[in-house]
């Protein structure tokens, strides 16, 4: 499998998912805001950008620069989108987790995860 050696960290996974959620509107700030909104967790600019850089290096996302605007000091945005490789990695991860969850014996956990459980 092409994913060998391309480990996906917990934070990276979250960033990658957020990029997916945002579709065409995924750039630094929007990803940050999305994570903060959905996961209720503070994200620092430094951590976010290095995660995005790593994801790009691993070819899980690709990016292109947008148009210049009047805000942001005239700087262009860099938009990200999830590559096929990235999507594959996410689904493998999800699958692995599900398998692990299912392997937990009945009654071993006092908490039970169900897709609808918030």
């Amino acid at each position: 499998m092409g994913l060998k050696g391309k480990h996906l960290g917990e934070f990276e996974e979250m960033v990658l998912l957020a990029v997916g959620v945002l579709g065409n509107e995924a750039y630094g700030i929007s990803v940050k805001n999305k994570i903060e909104e959905l996961v209720d967790r503070q994200v620092s600019m430094g951590a976010l950008h290095s995660a995005l850089n790593r994801l790009e290096e691993k070819q899980f996302v690709f990016s292109k620069l947008g148009e210049a605007t009047k805000t942001r000091g005239g700087k262009r945005k860099r938009f990200y989108s999830v590559s096929t490789l990235g999507q594959e990695a996410l689904s493998i991860l999800m699958e692995q987790r599900q398998q692990l969850w299912e392997a937990i014996p009945q009654g071993a956990f006092s908490v039970r995860w169900t897709p609808n459980n918030k």
């Binding site: 620069l65 700087k75 860099r78």
Partner: peptide, 15 residues
């Protein structure tokens, strides 16, 4: 190479 968009991002938050 990364400067522009990073700078843009932090400017945006700043504004």
């Amino acid at each position: 190479a990364d400067l522009e968009d990073i700078q843009g991002d932090i400017y945006e938050i700043y504004e």
